Amino acid sequence: MPNISRGRCLLKLRIAEAKTTQAQLSRRTGYAPQQISNWVNNREKMSYEAAVLCSYVLNCHAEDLYEWHFS
């Protein structure tokens, strides 16, 4: 069975594509600005629930928020 792992967070790119800001994403999701920054800068990984909420706000798929590696 193939393995899958999360790579680099693509949230910064998705925020830019949505023509919004980290501060606006923070307000719309209820996550603290520092938490958004931690995800954008790969200091922490998003929970599944956070990824789904962010993807809903940014109008993309949760899978689009990370690079994925298959082996």
Rank of each mutant, 00 (worst) to 15 (best):
K19S: 15
A50D: 10
S47A: 10
N3F: 12
S37Y: 05
W39D: 02
A62E: 05
P2G: 09
R43H: 14
L65G: 01
N42K: 02
A16T: 10
S26W: 10
Q34N: 09
Y31I: 00
Q34P: 00
G30E: 11
A16R: 08
K12I: 03
N3I: 05
A62I: 06
N42M: 10
W68C: 08
A16D: 15
L65I: 03
E49D: 15
E44H: 14
C9Q: 03
P2L: 14
L25D: 06
I4L: 15
I4V: 15
R8N: 10
R8M: 07
S26F: 12
Y31D: 03
A16P: 00
T29Y: 03
V40D: 01
N3V: 08
Q35F: 04
M1L: 09
E44C: 05
G30R: 09
G30F: 12
L10M: 12
Q22W: 03
T21I: 11
R27E: 11
S71V: 12
A18V: 07
L13E: 15
M1W: 12
K45V: 03
Q35W: 00
V40Q: 00
C60S: 05
Q24K: 15
T29P: 05
C54Y: 04
P2K: 15
I36R: 00
Y31L: 13
A18P: 01
V52F: 12
Q35M: 06
R6T: 06
M46N: 01
S26K: 07
E67N: 08
T20R: 05
K19N: 13
W68V: 13
L65Q: 07
M1F: 10
V40M: 03
A50N: 11
N3Y: 11
